[in-house]
Design a binder for these strands. Structure first.
Length: 515
RNA sequence: GCGGCCGUAGUCUAGUUUGGUUAGGACAUCAGCCUGCCACGCUGACGACCCGGGUUCAAAUCCCGGCGGCCGCACCA
């Protein structure tokens, strides 16, 4: 296959493997789909994206970050509803071997509602299918016995097989079960938020979209607790004029695929989005993706229909970003979870999850509501790479935002002789000591080394040349424009710190060199 | 899970139809020479037939099984 026949995903995957961003895990054993390994550059990029999320989304709101376990006792997911809902009844056609959702068949061919089918046991599902004479919609064949496919990974905790544990399918439950302590930690004030960035497990039937759909992935769950009787978002002013591209449920049902473009303010006044905080987080999600260089018209929010929503959600939007290979891909979900999770844990554990709020009369006790923005970290990495990928004069270039680049600076001696490598080593060591991530490269021609650095998105290249030996200056090269400036070595630390903190731009780094 | 196609160095690939020299090339990597700002050139080196079984004097090539991938179906709380 020639390069021009490949789509962007293939080009990026190949580059990702070659240069150490990510690749399929367990390749020596043939690989298992749904698992990837982040290599040296990829893990830095992923960490920097998560750090950017912390700085952009978390810190300004004073949201707390915690870390809980991946394996959790069965009780947690019985309470959360996942044991009941995080599975699908499947029937197989005995003739053509196709598999179908048993409940969907009954809804479609027996006119039952999803609330009706949801309650049925496997035996009842089979009885209904037989009684209504539901046959394979493809070939008319008979169905075998329905089976449950559990999408959570189950395990036994310790040597007692009756102690069922599950790998968490979301990090959210780790927050809900710790609610009481967390509420104390914020000195019993609402609203407040908690975030967890960690691995989650979902045993997908057949994941086939590389890093887009994984069985083990990193989820960023923000649970924001509010008083349902005081649902105003005081920060709304900051985003009220931000426009959102929404496909609301009503239009989706009519088959309208084009989003409507409305400001946050209007989306709320028209009741497209019910909760102010949810609208705020959606606007921030849009801005965050713009920070990853995704333009507005490559983003949209789609409202989930009643039967598409997770069991805990009363209103949900998926934020989607357009990727060349996969089309519109979900990068974040925004769900209004109400008091569902806390009340369920209160019911199952017997522990009081209510909070007390003083009012003018006597005060009231209530269970907080939850607004949840939830992101897939691995997908953010893919998106950042796809939107950073450019070509210039036939060469690949990763135009990553400077704060995300895994390597900040490359240091090159122009030639490997006449004392240039020795002088360059001093610069290299100095920058390491200053805390920068620096790459040393003296292999091959200077052009080849610039090309190598461009491909992994290193924003700046510092070259030590013959003039350096005379006056202590070096050239600094910009990855995106290939322009160069000349600056004093002594001033590099200050200049580079300012540059990477976005205090100054490339042209402020020194005297522009005309060639 | 089903059907179709496929599996050769880090990457891309030739060879498989018709079994037969040392499995060829390009890019990348490394070493040396070279080097004066955008994938320079030369020399050399490293490096592969997915796994297992079978047929055969002989298997990358044919057959069977497994594993994995891609596409379609299904699945995606």
């Amino acid at each position: 296959m020639k390069t021009q026949d490949k789509d962007k995903f293939e080009i990026i995957s190949e580059m990702a493997r070659r240069r150490g961003f990510f690749w399929p895990s367990y390749e020596i054993y043939g690989g298992v789909s749904g698992f990837i390994t982040f290599g040296p550059l990829g893990s830095i990029l992923k960490r920097k994206i998560e750090d950017k999320f912390r700085n952009f989304y978390i810190r300004p709101l004073g949201i707390l970050e915690i870390e809980t376990s991946v394996i959790m006792p069965g009780k947690v997911f019985e309470a959360s509803g996942h044991v009941d809902h995080f599975k699908e009844p499947i029937v197989e056609c005995l003739r053509c071997k196709r598999k179908f959702r048993a409940d969907h068949l009954l809804q479609e061919f027996a006119g039952m509602s999803d609330t009706e089918t949801e309650k049925l046991t496997l035996q009842e599902l089979m009885d209904k299918i037989n009684k209504r004479n539901v046959r394979c919609p493809d070939c008319g064949g008979d169905f075998g016995e329905p089976q449950q496919f559990m999408t959570m990974f189950a395990t036994a905790i310790g040597p007692y097989s009756e102690a069922v544990g599950y790998g968490r399918p979301e990090a959210a439950q780790g927050i809900f079960v710790e609610f009481r302590r967390l509420y104390e930690n914020v000195r019993e004030r609402l609203p407040f938020g908690v975030v967890q960035i960690g691995h989650a497990l979902r045993n997908e039937v057949s994941p086939r979209q590389g890093p887009i759909r994984l069985r083990e992935f990193t989820i960023i769950d923000v649970e924001f607790f509010i008083d349902p009787e005081d649902p105003q978002c005081p920060l709304l002013k900051k985003v009220e004029n931000e426009t959102l591209r929404l496909i609301i449920a009503e239009n989706k049902l009519k088959g309208i695929k084009e989003p409507i473009e409305v400001t946050v303010k209007k989306a709320l006044s028209k009741r497209y989005i019910k909760a102010e905080w949810q609208a705020f987080f959606m606007a921030m999600a849009k801005r965050f993706l713009m920070e990853l260089q995704v333009p507005e018209d490559k983003q949209r929010f789609i409202e989930k229909l009643d039967w598409e929503r997770a069991h805990y959600s009363v209103q949900g939007f998926d934020q989607e970003v357009y990727l060349e290979r996969w089309g519109w891909v979900e990068v974040s979900g925004h769900n209004y979870r109400t008091d569902y999770d806390l009340s369920r844990h209160m019911q199952f554990s017997g522990v009081d999850m209510k909070v007390f709020k003083e009012t003018e009369e006597e005060g009231r006790r209530f269970i907080p509501h939850v607004v949840e923005p939830s992101f897939g970290s691995d997908r953010l990495v893919c998106i950042a790479l796809e939107y950073a990928y450019k070509t210039k004069e036939g060469r690949a270039l990763l135009s990553l935002p400077r704060e995300l680049a895994p390597t900040q600076v490359s240091v090159f001696p122009l030639v490997s002789k006449d004392g240039l490598p020795e002088r360059a080593q001093q610069v290299y060591q100095m920058l390491i000591n200053e805390g920068f991530t620096v790459e040393w490269d003296e292999s091959g021609s200077i052009g080849r080394r610039y090309a190598r650095a461009d491909e992994v998105g290193t924003p700046l290249g510092i070259t030590i040349d013959y003039q350096t030996l005379e006056d202590g200056t070096v050239t600094i090269r910009d990855r995106d424009t290939w322009r160069q400036v000349r600056s004093k070595i002594d001033e590099l630390p200050e200049l580079l710190h300012a540059y990477f903190r976005h205090k100054i731009n490339f042209e402020d780094l020194g005297q522009l060199i005309k060639r």
